[in-house]
Write a protein that binds this DNA or RNA. Sequence first.
DNA 1: TTCAAATGTAAAATATACTTTACATTTAAG
DNA 2: CTTAAATGTAAAGTATATTTTACATTTGAA
Lengths: 66, 66
Amino acid sequence: MKNTIHVERAIKRMTQADLAEAVGVSRQTINALEASKYVPSVVLALKIARYFDKPVEAIFELEKED
Amino acid sequence: MKNTIHVERAIKRMTQADLAEAVGVSRQTINALEASKYVPSVVLALKIARYFDKPVEAIFELEKED
DNA sequence: TTCAAATGTAAAATATACTTTACATTTAAG
DNA sequence: CTTAAATGTAAAGTATATTTTACATTTGAA
């Protein structure tokens, strides 16, 4: 699992805390997602994608090992 | 969280066990997802969507309470 | 109607997402 | 350089996804 949350966040010039609040999770959760420490639920993925107005697949990408 | 897994499965005329094997989870996991007993990870959602050749959003939909 | 396949369900165990608190490090602006 | 904001990280706790085993019920085809 690979994601481009930090890129989307850079485009919108927002902090991890901003995004966390926008999608209703803690800042550490966003930080951990960006660091690929774990895989989000599809609910959180949908919220993040919707926030950035992109399809889930544009932000979260499967890798061979998934 | 609402999903249309059983519909996609009906279109392809496949069993829960078939889909489970195709995406690498147990049959009970598919059964529980169809019964909305829990929310899958985005990895599993991506695999299911990819298997049905549709975007995640076409199969998994956020609800107000999410 | 009968039988096998498909589905529903449940409990126990394990893995992992997510939160909270707290602190250290980095970065950017003044 | 100094300071505040942003980020990285970590540990402990809670919630929940997923598996395994097992059995009951439903459904469909012969």
